[in-house]
Simulated scan of single mutants.
Amino acid sequence: MIKVGLILGIAGACRTDELVNLTVDDIEDVGSSLIVKIPNTKTKIPRIFVITDVGNILELFRKYMSLRPPHVKHKRLFLYYKFAASWQEYHGKNSYSVVASYLKLPDVACYTGHCLRRSSATLLADAGVDITTIKRHAGWKSTTVAEGYVENSIENKTKIANQVLVGTTTSAITKTVNVRESNIPSNINFENCTNVTFNLNVNK
């Protein structure tokens, strides 16, 4: 349950109440991925996100679903399986403090399901995702909130440090080589490059 909660929470930037209220009807298994719908959100903007099969995630989700007792009448996704008599109970927003405890993190009580939402936004910001995409993914109306994650991104701070200290800037370089030429250089060297994309076009 905890692993599935971590996957859903981080993949979808879910709020605590969104995880608690998630039902089996909100998740569609289409074979190669899971399509997850969050119909009721704090901002009144329904969200949909997809979970692909990275690291056998789908197998883990399906295993969790196979444990669901057939006689449970409600459709909430997360159940409490510790005791048979507790099958009708739901997991709450503080269930994820057990993860912080397992990882031996300080101030365990401070870690709730909302940390999954923050982690999702932070991972996107560190990956260089633009603010519009972060807002759309997390369902934020406020640009200020999304900007907070970008401003605190280690990747973004590193980029700024390089620009301040060594004058590194972002630039585009186009190199065209005709394979029929006899003076083709043996190699092309790039120095002081970060976040570089190479596009190779081969014309036969």
Rank of each mutant, 00 (worst) to 15 (best):
D25A: 10
D26T: 07
D26C: 14
D26P: 04
S32H: 15
S32D: 15
K37S: 12
K37P: 00
K42D: 02
T43V: 07
T43S: 15
K44F: 13
I45W: 06
P46Q: 06
V50I: 14
I51Q: 04
T52E: 12
V54P: 00
G55E: 02
N56C: 11
I57T: 14
L58V: 03
M65Y: 09
L67I: 03
L67T: 07
P70D: 07
H71T: 02
K73H: 05
K75W: 01
K82T: 07
F83A: 11
F83G: 05
A84S: 10
A85M: 06
W87A: 03
Y90S: 08
S95V: 10
S95E: 10
L103Q: 07
L103M: 14
P106D: 08
D107N: 14
V108P: 01
C110K: 13
S119W: 00
S120H: 01
A121R: 00
L123S: 04
L124T: 00
D126L: 01
D126R: 04
G128K: 02
V129H: 02
D130R: 04
D130T: 04
D130M: 02
I131R: 15
T133G: 02
K135R: 13
W140G: 05
W140I: 05
K141R: 09
K141H: 11
T143F: 12
V145L: 15
A146G: 06
A146E: 05
E147Q: 14
